[in-house]
């Protein structure tokens, strides 16, 4: 399955929120949309979900204009919230049935997910009695209970502790393994880096960077090396290239990418003790800051 957004424009009054964005997501791979607060992530997601219409542009599923009636979406909205005063099991079954499931299947699926997220003990409690993090998990069950083909998660990690974040990460990976299409937004780079193959950076309503995360990194300047060793000072003093120590590594700036082998020869010939040498790749955070910095 392929989800395409083409040239989407959206304004709220004077505020031009999305300025002709185009995105593409495919089954089995996660697309992470990154952006600072107010960049337009949630607006883009709400347009995909049909919460409100776009002013211009089109959305396609497998090349055909989207028909939301025939797609099983799983949606985790940014604004979390269910029925605080209702029994958890009851409302989960209700939401599953709204998605078209019959009661038996709904109950079965709800029980499966409650179990998967270690929430079975709360099934007969009212939602409001749960902690915020646990309420988030219930909300996640609402998203996944109908076994959706397209999973849209708006800031899924906000409010989760590291253990629960790991749980969510595992679940998303399982869904991807089942060839589901996962589309999510976040400003928490570490999670995105963990399992997103494709990213799009949204800044002030424009896509400023879009593509495979590894390719993006590979396209960066590869003339910087990162060296791990027991005695960094010794290496620093014995090499010709400009270098500095950062944390537990030595960063070496080559004159050009082609000098890599020359540098390796130097290490070998000078018999310097090295644990690891690799090309320095910017982290997603570095890339993100680079592309969105001017708006800070």
């Amino acid at each position: 399955m392929k989800l395409e957004l083409k040239n989407i424009n959206k304004s709220f009054g004077e505020n031009h929120v999305l300025k002709g964005i185009s995105l593409e997501a495919t089954s089995g791979k996660a697309l992470g949309v990154l952006g600072r607060n107010g960049a337009g992530k949630t607006t883009a997601i709400r347009i995909v979900m049909g919460v409100f219409p776009q002013d211009e542009g089109e959305i396609f599923i497998d090349g055909k204009p989207i028909d939301r009636k025939h797609i099983n979406f799983g949606y985790l909205p940014e604004e979390r919230g269910l029925y605080p005063k209702k029994i958890i099991l009851d409302q989960l079954v209700y939401f599953a049935m709204l998605k078209g499931m019959n009661k038996t299947d709904a109950v079965k699926s709800v029980k499966h997910w409650l179990d998967r997220l270690n929430m079975s003990e709360y099934s007969n409690k009212k939602l409001e009695t749960l902690s915020k993090g646990n309420q988030q998990k219930i909300q996640l069950i609402v998203t996944l209970v109908s076994d959706p083909d397209i999973i849209i998660l708006d800031e899924p990690f906000s409010g989760l502790d590291p253990v629960n974040a790991k749980l969510l990460e595992d679940i998303v990976k399982e869904e991807l393994a089942k060839n589901k299409l996962v589309f999510f937004s976040s400003h928490q780079m570490n999670y995105i880096e963990e399992f997103c193959e494709n990213i799009a950076i949204l800044n002030k309503g424009n896509i400023v960077l879009n593509g495979n995360i590894h390719e993006i990194k590979r396209n960066y300047d590869r003339s910087k090396l990162i060296i791990a060793a027991q005695n960094l000072e010794n290496i620093k003093n014995n090499i010709d290239e400009e270098s500095f120590i950062e944390k537990d590594n030595l960063i070496v700036q080559l004159k050009s990418e082609a000098d890599k082998n020359k540098f390796l020869n130097q290490i070998v010939s000078k018999n310097l003790d090295v644990d690891e040498i690799k090309v320095f790749e910017p982290s997603l955070k570095d890339i993100f800051v680079e592309y969105t910095e001017e708006s800070i």
Binding site: V51, P77, G81, L82, Y83, F95, K99
Partner: peptide
Amino acid sequence: SEKSSRAMEILITSA
């Protein structure tokens, strides 16, 4: 109250 508890966004995208 569905609106203020923010259950609405789920409801409106499900039904």
